[in-house]
Design a protein around this nucleic acid. Sequence first.
DNA 1: ATATTTATCTGACTTAAGTCAGATAAATAT
DNA 2: ATATTTATCTGACTTAAGTCAGATAAATAT
Lengths: 297, 297
Amino acid sequence: MDRTDIEQVRRFNRLVTRRAGALEDDYLKRGRPLGEARLLYEIGADGDDVSALRDRLALDSAYVSRLLRSLEAQGLLTVSADTIDRRRRSVKLTPLGQAERDAYDALSDDLAMSLLEPLGGRQRTRLLAAMADVETLLKASSIAISRDRPDSPDAVACLAAYFAELDARFDGGFDPGIGGAAADMAMAPPHGSFLVARLDGAPVASGGLKVIAPGIGEIKRMWVAAPVRGMGLARRLLKALEAEAARLGLATVRLDTNRSLTEAHALYRTSGYAEIARYNDNPYAHLFFEKALPRPD
Amino acid sequence: MDRTDIEQVRRFNRLVTRRAGALEDDYLKRGRPLGEARLLYEIGADGDDVSALRDRLALDSAYVSRLLRSLEAQGLLTVSADTIDRRRRSVKLTPLGQAERDAYDALSDDLAMSLLEPLGGRQRTRLLAAMADVETLLKASSIAISRDRPDSPDAVACLAAYFAELDARFDGGFDPGIGGAAADMAMAPPHGSFLVARLDGAPVASGGLKVIAPGIGEIKRMWVAAPVRGMGLARRLLKALEAEAARLGLATVRLDTNRSLTEAHALYRTSGYAEIARYNDNPYAHLFFEKALPRPD
DNA sequence: ATATTTATCTGACTTAAGTCAGATAAATAT
DNA sequence: ATATTTATCTGACTTAAGTCAGATAAATAT
């Protein structure tokens, strides 16, 4: 990463923050403190729990309570006890509150339009495409990969999504029982590893590693959720799994794959994997790959 | 402009503002109020005038004064009377202040790097390119075009830059005297029009319109500064000048151009101009164009 | 039945951010 | 020489934003 890259990111941050400042000013223009405006805006059309609002805005309980009291006094919302747990309280916008929320919404629309307005059609398309790109890639950069047990709730959810996808894509479907789902605990530490990638806390990709012979690991269950594909996440995950193998002292990693998973084949080949002969009796596998890991020094 | 475009811009703003929020938190992490941090950061290595700081940060005089007092007490800067005008005061960072400023700088670098770090090479290049695109186009969208007299300081500066550019590009140079610089007041209202495009207050493009025969206008002196080319600004300016012509009741606009200005020829052709025969004796002109304006209704 | 936990609220406080009216001293205009 | 303007500062104030310690009432655990 060189200096000009960092400068580009900082210049971008500066410029966009200045524009975002204009948005906050718009909020303030409606003559209401930003805290109240944010809270009002955060309450959906169906209302919300006080605790949900507190969590989403990361605000202190006392502070939220006072903001609610103020908005209540302005006739913008009502607070009532939850019917199931009467300690909890639910917030609902009054028609007046809904109108206010709509007004903030319209202001945000205006701001967005004022950015597009002066541009010609071609420039506008280019700006929107660049914004979508920045959005996708900033999201990608906030995805964090961490170790997890294969029986953790997130890991189980990832594996279930993976199996469901294979079932949809393979000719004749996929049955994890035959494929060896029961053996997934072989990816548990200390001998194996299972990685989960999360975006804003929600699991979006996963993959595991188990030892199949002395010094030889096998990468299994690589899965990337549909909404986060095209972000280079599979490649990152594969690299991370190779790092796990190196950490566990393995010299070689292998993997098998179905003929229908063509994107995966390309990924393996461009990541330094060479096709080898069948090394197991997995009925769903048609292609077999191997890569020698660099010796740790 | 449809709904999905606006949604894209708003989603982008939301996401980037959240990230920018992280940057502000970083500032605050150094245990200093944001106002002090911003002021400290704004003072360049060579120091600054109090009034310049006030203008740049758009802060109240009393508030800046107090912030300076606080930073002075922390030993981060010194304030001394200007040698020429002793009412003015100059601010200079102490070595300690410079070190603090460097620390903020390093934090911003860290934040920028933390965005790029998790991405692979290809994704990183894509993100940087998209950021550069957003930056360019947001700048383009903040360029405002307005009417100006051809003898205003900004207009004169634009015309001088235009003449200098022609002199550099034409074989054998360009002499505004021969070209008719003295006649530029024909572009003054009420019979003509001169438009200046400004980015953050500084003139970056211009163009004029004068009447050369009943119902016929001529577009002249179209100039776009080098740093803002490739933003579609020339096309915007041309459209704006056509609108001026329509406003002045003209039915047709003409223009002449030099054979060396090839980008301009393409712009005219794709903007609905048709080549016509020579209509004047401008020695620098080789191509002549005309466009019928839609009748106002 | 009683103790503990949980969700929200109230009271009392702090800090940052900013505003407004004038004071002061130097520069500039008459 | 005097009046006016300009640049900065000081005093006195406001408002927003937020924190912390408890109070209250309902739910849950023992």
